[in-house]
């Protein structure tokens, strides 16, 4: 099934994606994303990218649809955000499954 891709974040981070065919939802403040979320999560989009500040704001809403196969919500670093939130999200998933995330971190290092 052909689907669109959405991105939510501050306009500096997301504007560059519009010419590439991504549905861009710029927000002035991360809290504004609450208003946009229902439309984005309704199933019209296969993938939703959110910048780190927006993810921090929407964590609950995102967790609520985590068990559905689509949309796949993925955190990307925004312009000027330090990164690492996506990695932390992954580490949490590992911890959930294995019970510890240290083991795999060591193995990777």
């Amino acid at each position: 099934m052909a689907e669109k891709v959405a991105i939510i974040g501050d306009s500096t981070s997301v504007a560059g994606f519009r010419p590439l065919g991504v549905a861009v939802f710029p927000v002035a403040e991360p809290a504004d994303a609450h208003a946009i979320w229902p439309e984005v999560a309704s199933g019209a989009y296969g993938i939703v990218f959110v910048t780190e500040p927006v993810y921090a704001e929407l964590a609950e809403e995102i967790a609520a649809i985590a068990d559905r196969p689509v949309p796949a919500v993925t955190v990307i670093p925004g312009a000027g955000s330090p990164g690492g939130v996506g990695e932390a999200k992954l580490a949490r998933a590992i911890e959930r499954a294995v019970g510890t995330s240290t083991l795999i971190r060591e193995e990777e290092a």
């Binding site: 099934m1 052909a2 689907e3 669109k4 891709v5 959405a6 306009s11 504007a15 560059g16 519009r18 010419p19 590439l20 065919g21 991504v22 549905a23 861009v24 296969g46 993938i47 196969p69 689509v70």
Partner: peptide, 19 residues
């Protein structure tokens, strides 16, 4: 100016999903 330049472009079907 940059913001205006980046206004071009329509959301397209970028991905195909299956399960």
């Amino acid at each position: 100016d940059l913001a205006q330049a980046l206004l071009a472009g329509e959301p397209a079907d970028l991905v195909t999903t299956a399960e």
